[in-house]
Every structure is written in C-alpha cells, then in structure tokens.
Design a binder for these strands. Structure first.
Lengths: 396, 396
DNA sequence: ACATCTTTGTCCTGCGAGTGGAGAAAGTCT
DNA sequence: AGACTTTCTCCACTCGCAGGACAAAGATGT
C-alpha cells in the first residue's frame, strides 16, 4: 500500500498542517485566526490540502453564534513510527498525525549488540504493532539513538557507548526496510522535542532538557529549534569534568560527570554501599536480585534508607553544579529533568535546585523553573514522531 | 540636518543593503548573482533604493568581457557611531555604511562613575570626532555595556560591576542626545558580532567568543544570530564555579572563574607575587608604577619571567577547563579568545588549547579552531556599528 | 412566525509582485 | 568590421493574494 505521497506545496500549507497537528481538528475560520491570510486564500489552500488527501473533512463544528463551520482534520489513517533506542532498552510507538500515541512497546535490549540486531528488533516490534491493526503501514518514522548523529545524513558518529554504530547508515537502512521517510537524531534531542510538543516545555522558546539515564545528556532548544552543534555532538555534557581528579571514566579521562552520577554510576555506588555494609536496605535488595539498579536506590530511598538518600543527594549536587554552569552560560527559560532517574523524584530535584539557585546569578535564576519531565518514557517516541512530522509537513 | 529618514521597504531591499554593506560597491549584475531575483525585479528594487538616497550610483565597473556595469554603493555620507563601554575605558568610533572605521577614540574611564558621567564622556568624544569633519551627524549608534541588557528595550539590568546602571534607559537617553536610532547590547555580544563581521568568525555559523578583560564573558552565536538568553544574561560565564571552595568573589560565592582568572585577578595575583618576592621582574615593575596590571604581567612574561608565565598558564588552565565544558555542551565551530588579555598571547592560548583538547570529546574538538580575535580593541565598536546597521537595514 | 444579527463559506475583481523574453546598449576579441 | 559577451531596460504575462459582495446557515429577539 502506498502511503502519504503528498507533501505541502508551500509554506502556507506547511503552516496549516502543523496547526492541525498541534491543535487537532479545526475549522477554516479558526485556522484563519491563526495564520494571517485572507479567507479566500486560506480556503484555496485548504481545498488543495483536501485534494492531496493529507487533510479530510471532519463534520460540522458547534455554532459560535452563527453558521456552523465545516471542520477539517489531518487524515485519520496517517501513521508515524516513533523509535527511541536507549542504552539498555528500545521503545517503539505508533502515533496518528496529531502525534497521539496509539500503541507503545518497550523491550530491554543492549545497544551494544549493534545496529543490525537492534534494527531487527525494532522492525519486529513495529510489525507487532501493525499486527494489532493500529496501522496498515507507516508514513514516516523518527528514530533516536543514544549518541551523536550527523543529522542531515541520519548517521550516528563516533558514539562512545555504542561501538559498531559509527557511520552505520541508519536512516537509509531503516527507510529501505520500512518503505517510508526516516529521520534520525540524538535521543536527548528527541526527548526535548517531545516535552516541547506535548509536555512541560510548551510555549517556551529557550530551554534545556537534561536526560539522566544510563548516561547523561542535554537537549538544547534555542528559539524553538533544537541546537545540534557543528558536528552533532551538542549537549554531550556527560564528560564535562565534575570532580578534579575524580573517578576514572570510560572515555579515558577522570572526574567526568557521567562517572559520578548517572544510572550506571548510581547502581555501581549502590552495590559498593551494600557490600561495605553501609545500607541494610540495599544489601537486602542486592541479595535478592544479585544486582542493583537506579530503581532499587529509588525504592530504598522511598523506604527511608539514609545511604540511598545520600547517594541521590550527592548525585543531585554534582549534576546541579554542572547545570548551574550551563544556566549561567545559556540563560534558559526552563530546565527540564528527565530520563530513567526521574524515579528519584523530588530528592534529586531538590538537590539540583539548591545548587543552581545558589551558584548561578539571580538574574538568570530569578524566574527559572526547574521541573521534572511530564511525559516520562513517552517523551522520546513523541519527539521522534514530531521529528519526522516536522520533516514531512515542510515543503518538499 | 536630517539624516537617513529612509528604511528598506521590504526584505529584498534589506538583503541588498546588507550585501552592499558587507561586500562594498557592487554592480546590479553581481548583486543579481547573490540574491536569486530576476534581473527586472532586481533593477526595480535597486532603483527604489536609489530614490530613497540610501544607495547611490558609483560609476562604471571594469568590464567582465562585455558591457561595463553601473556600480552602486551605500550612500557615502552615512555615519554610524560605535560605542564600547568597558569596565575601565570607553571606545568610540565613527564608521561609514560599510562599517569601516573612519575615526576611533579611546579614553580611560571607570564605568562605576555611573551612566550620566559616562554618557557625557561618550557624547564629548562623539563631538570631538564630529569636529574632525568625519561626520556631520550620525544615522545610528550602537552601544555595548559590560553587563546584561534587556535587549528589546535597550536597558541594562542588574549589572554586578556597574551599580547605578540598573534600569537606566540607556537607549532612550542616548537616542535623545544624538538624535538618531540607538541599540544597546552587552559588550561581549558586540565583540562577537565584530569578529563575525570583519574578523576571524566570518562564515562560521555557530561560535563562541570569550572576552577576558577586567571580567570575563562569552558571546554566543547560533546560526549566525547572537543568543542573548531569556533575561539577556546568556554568556555570563564569569561566575561559573571554577575551583570548589576557591577564592571569594565579589558576587558572594567562592571559586568563581572571574575570581581566579581575569584582568583584575591577574593584576591582584601579580602584586601578591611581587610582594612575596617570587618575581624580581614584577617587583621592579611594581616599584616603578605603584601598581600592576595584566599588561605588566605580559611584559614580564615576554621578558622570560617564570612566575608571570606560571600565572598566565595557570589562568589559561582555569579558563580552558571551563571552555572545555562549554565546547562539550555547545559544540561550536570556532572559539575566539579576545579582550584585554589578548596581549598574553600564545602562552595563554596554548594553555587553553591544551585543556580543551584534553577534556572535551574528540568529536567536538576534532576540527575546532581556537584562535585569538583578529580585531583587538576595534571588535567592540565594529560590532556596535553592525548592531545598529542590522537594525536600520531591516524593514521598518 | 418573522425580522435581525452573526458567523461562515464562496465568488469575483483588481492590484502588485515577480518572471522571462526581446531587444538595445556597450564592451571585448579576432 | 563582424561576431560574441555582458549589462541594462522595457514589456507582456502569470500568479499570489487581499478585500468586498453575496449567499448560506444558524442564533436571538419580538
């Protein structure tokens, strides 16, 4: 089955498509209020979009005191695939054109198994979602990978935690397999786009989105656009030095932020604490599971374990100190904290806030919200869907 | 005398004006190669610009193998005033429409004397330049101040080193006095714009411009545009913590970068070294002048003084470490080092480079030039002229 | 039930932006 | 002197788009 052959023919149509995506079904009149075009011109463009099939009529709207308007909406059969490849798991979701999640699968998987194995997994998950009848095919797919990406080509470059991915033509390969356009980006950037589209960062122009999972990274949004940097490695804050002569890091340096606080570091510290007898709770969990993760630390902390709380606080102080620097530098309007460690919740957040508010200048922190992400694990897949929809809803 | 009443009527004219500003006199044919308009349309727009007087005919160009073209150029009597207010001195320059400096004055002055005294000084310097016959009046002025600015209004806010300036309506006041449009910005941003226009940063989209003078700050350019942040304090890196529990800083915290390395900190450390007998050279200079400045340290270092070299290296390491973090975060295509301490030259640069190349990931540093600014003290005033010309050469 | 007011959608006319071609003007080169 | 180039101007034609007139459809008041 052929899908979504059409693309908007001009900037007006692109604008309209994005309004319908972000605002849902809408009448011509309401659209007219938002785009600053004459009614005639608007009608012409809407008609053309109807012709392409990207947009369909959607019945009559309630009256606003006069003639009822004919609603239009994006084609209800459009389907986007959002893929979020993490270090230790894969998320795949299907969305409609409004980027609402219709189905979502999550599977543990080690990214180090390499692109071929991971993409096989992704394709099988996509097939499973298709089999439920949610989609007959995909009109586009967005993919996030946990490392830097040469964005225009959609190729991961020099990813430290994912050897074997360097230079792999991810976009090309997946586009072949799925038979639809594909865009590839860093997973952190997609999380930022997700929170921007449907989460806490709506209507904020400049913000930072800190993702703390196995590793740690930062999505940078400037004037509503993701900043990817000259080589696609912008936001790679995991290897900023947090502690002079600190712990050795996988990258070869010492004292990297990631080596001191991240999902992996937290698990390591927890095991250490358990073995040294500093925490009975953690020791019990370790004995039960054979290993510990950030989630266990969160559990123990929730149960009041002092050592776990200390670990979280100390980690929050480390990240907070780095974030304080970034806030001074970048002066964002919002800082979002997300990723796997969101479960550490307000203990973590409080530590981060304390550091930032203490270390950055009042002018930069005066009215600066520092909040947890709203979308949790769906931020990445929503961001991925948004990435490809932004692409497809732009003039060809 | 009334000056430059006209503004470009549309985006095409704005584009043409900027091409003439950046490329000098040009023929219609050459302009046509750069703007992607039909010859007829281009001719119309150029004619309209000629009518407004913003652009004038400039004789015939050399033949390129056919009929010679009629050159046009920006009106030769246009004059911009560029003002760069530093912590300890004021620069004022007059430029033509191509932003070439026609006259330049520099005067020591303490910014803490307050806006009224400083602006009086600026006006008198502007008058002096006018008196030389370089200008009959000014068509616009750009001003840089050493602190954050609420850009749209042109008002300094909460400037730590310049009490008395907070909320002072700088733009309004100067516009009144000079009788022309005025734009106000942070001095570091203007330095970045200067280097972008006429210095090392031509044709680089994303770059950082570190200015190390009395204090320390950073201009951030994203996609060719200066990023000012939500409250106008972006780039304020002087108070990022460089040394845990380090030296006390004027801001109330400890270990701020600025407290450990800046023109002021360097002078302080040099006096200390001289008094403790760690450097004969510095002691001699101290005895001779009664005080020491960054320039003295540069002099001593050039003469081979080991203590001075150590001070510079240590400072470079501190800044370099912070810059390394910013490079990881922002992934720029270029880092420019400028400001008063440029005189410390390659000793400083080498220390910075070492830190950045060692601490940042290879992907971010792989092809990253770290260079000294090309324009020295003129970067600020050129940037100021460019700021106001960007404003005036945009549709009203 | 009827008139009036509002909102929505369509049609038509006219303006201005912009393209592209035909030529004229002004050179160079052989 | 003739052939070829480049530049500039003029003109006819197309297209995007605004804005008004008008029709359709509904709400509201008497």
């Amino acid at each position: 089955m052929r899908r979504m052959t059409a693309r908007p023919a001009n900037a007006h149509q692109a604008r309209l498509l994005k309004l319908l995506r972000d605002g849902g079904p809408n009448s011509r009149a309401q659209l007219g209020d938002q785009v600053d075009l004459s009614r005639s011109k608007l009608a012409v463009e809407v008609d053309r979009l109807l012709e392409t099939g990207l947009v369909v009529a959607d019945g009559l709207a309630a009256s606003r005191g006069g003639r009822r308007s004919h609603n239009v909406r994006l084609a209800p059969n459009l389907r986007f695939l959002g893929v979020d490849i993490g270090a230790t798991s894969v998320d795949v979701a299907v969305t409609n054109a409004e980027l609402e999640i219709l189905g979502h699968l999550n599977q543990p998987m080690d990214v180090r198994e390499g692109p071929v194995a991971v993409f096989e997994q992704v394709l099988s998950m996509a097939a499973k979602l298709k089999a439920t009848g949610l989609a007959e095919g995909f009109d586009g797919a967005g993919i996030g990978v946990p490392g830097p990406v040469r964005f225009p080509e959609g190729v991961p470059v020099a990813p430290p935690i994912m050897p074997g991915w360097d230079g792999f033509p991810a976009r090309e390969a997946l586009s072949q397999e799925l038979g639809c356009p594909v865009m590839v980006d860093n997973d952190v950037n997609l999380m930022a786009m997700g929170e921007q589209h449907a989460g806490v960062a709506r209507s904020v122009g400049d913000f930072l989105c800190i993702k703390i999972g196995t590793g740690i990274g930062c999505g940078i949004v400037v004037g509503g656009e993701v900043h990817r940097g000259t080589t696609g490695s912008a936001g790679d804050i995991g290897h900023i030095q947090a502690v002079p002569d600190g712990r050795p890091c996988a990258c070869g340096n010492r004292g990297c932020l990631e080596a001191h606080f991240s999902g992996a570091a937290l698990a390591r510290d927890a095991v250490e604490a358990a073995q040294q007898g500093r925490s009975a709770e953690l020791a019990t969990l370790l004995a039960a599971n054979g290993t510990l993760t950030a989630v266990d630390v969160a559990t123990a902390a929730a149960a009041g374990d002092a050592t776990s709380l200390d670990l979280i606080r100390e980690g929050g102080n480390r990240v907070g100190q780095i974030i304080a620097g970034l806030v001074s530098f970048f002066n964002p309007g919002l800082v979002v904290i997300g990723g796997g460690v969101t479960g550490l919740g307000h203990t973590l957040l409080a530590a981060i806030r304390t550091q930032v508010y203490r270390q950055s200048l009042p002018l930069a922190t005066g009215n600066l919200p520092i909040v947890l992400g709203e979308l949790g694990p769906t931020a990445g897949v929503i961001g991925a869907a948004r990435l490809i929809s932004d692409h497809l809803f732009s003039p060809a």
